[in-house]
Structures are given as C-alpha cells and as structure tokens.
C-alpha cells in the first residue's frame, strides 16, 4: 500500500538575528491510510513546525527543504500556493492546539463549518449544511442543527475543539494533522477528544498525524511513534516497540517520567530529565542530547548515527542495541 504522506530529509530553517535557526534538521517518516503516527517531543523540538510545513502554513521567512515530501504521490514542495490551497482543508486538514482562539469570533459555527465544503466541493448551501449537522452530531455535539447559528464565544473549549474536528472532517480528508489537540483542555475532556479522534480515524479511514508531548496520549492512540529531539527524530517505531524496548536515552527518560499508580511512591519527586535543549541556531556537532544524557561518552561529541533496525524502526545513538537496553534497565531501576 502506498503511503498517504511520505517525507524524507525535511528541514525547516528560520532566519533570526544570530543566524539560521535550524528548527527541523532532516527528518523522515511516512504515514499510511487508517494509521496514526504520533510525533512526540518537548516544546521547541520542531514538531509543530513539521506539521505546519506539511500544510504549507509556515511563516514566509521560514525556509523549507526536503528530499521527498509526497502527499498521495504529489510532490508538495513543487505545488504553487493556489494548488496547495486546493488541497488544504480539502484532502488534508489540521486541528490546532488552541480551540479558544482558533475560531473566528465574528462568524457563526455554521458559517465557519460550511466554509471549506463550499469552497472545495462547490456544493449547495443545503448540502453543506446537512454535512455540517451530520458531522457535529458525529463529534458528539447535541442539538447540532441549532448550534449552527451559535457563535464561538457561546461554546466551551471542549465543544469548540469538537467543532474544529468536525471542520477538519468536512471534506473527508485523506490526512488529518492534529497539533496537540488536547493540551488546552481539561483532563476529562482530553480523554473524550482522543477517543473521538481514534474513532473517527477508523470510520473515515484517513491517516492521522498526532503531535503531542504527552506519552499517555501516545500509548492510547498511536500505531507508530516518532520521538523528536532538537529538530531530529531520535527514535521511531511502533507504539509497542517504543514502550517495550525504548532504545534512545531520551525516550527512556520520557517513559521513566510517567508516574505509575502503585509503583511511583506517594510523595516522591516526579521524574524529570535534567538539563535544557541546546540552541538550534547553527550546527550541532555530534549528538544533540549528549549534555543531558547519563550515558554520554567521547564518541557522542563527534558522532550521531541513526541505526535502522527494520523499516520504520530505528534509533539515533552511538551505542548498539544491547548497550541501549542495558541503559534502559539501569534508568528504570534508578
């Protein structure tokens, strides 16, 4: 089966006063129909810029490059703005992190929901309206028909995010990108929204890229995981592989930080990874994680190899698999 989205060697550079900020430093991934890829990483690791670059929504001054950036066989980088706009909101759609501010306060929910459908499907108002009502019901909003005439400020954050999801689904996209869709929501609502996303991905059989910093989210919905650190993918694999056999010390650290009921002692300090992310301005020689890594040695100063174990499974480290597994045991028992 051919991938919905296939990316290799993607870089995003942003010129700043001190030079070029290499926000994304050559990443590869692909996502298939009906598959959920989670991109995990902390703030500033380049995961949001990655998603924006796929949508072609990067700020104008950002420079984007890739060896390959294919969406269902079309090279996205060669498209003109007008051609890209015809795909955006139609065949690929995006759900953003901030439901409170992502809807225009001046227009009704109905107006904003119907907009992409009217634009891309050249449908009648009636059809678009029916589609909007159907999807609002589908995302679990009661009294859907009457919601169409409501304004964003009349809805709660959770409802607004449901509206954003319905809006993304309007044109039945092949690819949905959700950039931290639950970060701004209450914990109880988070679970509902995640459950909904997973359910809808199955129903509409689209590919889903979920960007998050929350490993709990990853464990619940992901098929594949890519862990990003300082603009690079440091580990990739299926969700089972990542949780059962984390190889990169950063992934291992992240998993160790998750408090486990019964296991994490009451009142004990929550886990953390000491240190901060290196500056992304200019080149980084060697491994970018070495200053926070307990297992760093001399080779890390110069080398930063990516080992591909099998297609879709790999990690970036100077150590071999047995050594990495031993590190994982040591970290977990610490």
């Amino acid at each position: 089966m051919s991938a919905v989205l296939e990316i290799s060697g993607l870089t995003v550079d942003i010129p700043v006063a001190a030079g070029d900020l290499h926000a994304v430093r050559g990443i590869d991934f692909s996502v298939d129909k009906g598959e959920t890829l989670c991109i995990v990483g902390e703030s500033g690791c380049g995961k949001s810029l990655t998603s924006l670059s796929i949508m072609g929504l990067l700020p104008k001054r950002a420079k984007i490059n890739a060896d390959k950036m294919q969406f269902t066989g079309t090279d996205l980088l060669s498209l003109k703005e007008r051609e890209l706009a015809a795909i955006r909101g139609n065949r690929m759609a995006m759900i953003f992190q901030e439901p409170m501010t992502s809807l225009n306060p001046a227009y009704t929910i109905g107006n904003q929901l119907m907009e992409p459908y009217l634009r891309h499907k050249k449908s009648s108002d009636k059809e678009a309206r029916e589609r909007a009502i159907y999807l609002l019901e589908r995302v679990g909003i009661t009294a859907a028909a009457s919601r169409l005439s409501q304004y964003p400020h009349q809805l709660s954050g959770g409802l607004r995010q449901r509206v954003m999801i319905a809006m993304a689904l309007m044109c039945d996209p092949e690819l949905i990108i959700a950039d931290e869709p639950t970060t701004a929501l209450d914990v109880t609502i988070q679970a509902q929204i995640l459950h909904l996303l997973a359910e809808l991905r199955n129903e509409f059989n689209s590919a889903l890229i979920l960007i998050t910093h929350d490993l709990g989210v990853v464990a619940r919905v992901a098929d594949k995981v890519a862990v990003m650190y300082a603009g690079k993918i440091v580990e990739a694999g299926t969700v089972e592989e990542i949780f059962n056999q984390p190889l990169h010390p950063y992934t291992q650290g992240l998993i160790n930080c998750i408090p486990v009921p019964g296991k994490t002692a009451r009142g004990s300090r929550l886990g953390s990874i000491p240190g901060i992310v290196p500056t992304l301005i200019g080149d980084i020689k060697g491994c970018s994680f070495r200053n926070r890594c307990g297992f760093a040695h001399d080779a890390c100063d110069t080398n930063d190899p990516f080992h591909t174990l099998n297609p879709g499974r790999g990690y970036r480290c100077t150590l071999d698999v047995p050594a990495c597994e031993a590190n994982a045991k040591e970290l977990a028992s610490a």
Partner: peptide, 12 residues
C-alpha cells in the same frame, strides 16, 4: 489563530 485556521481551510 483563526486566520491560521482560515488558511488551513484553503480559503483564498
């Protein structure tokens, strides 16, 4: 953010 949403919808 809502202008970003509008662009993400592919509006002209």
């Amino acid at each position: 953010d809502y202008i970003r949403t509008a662009r993400a919808k592919g509006l002209s």
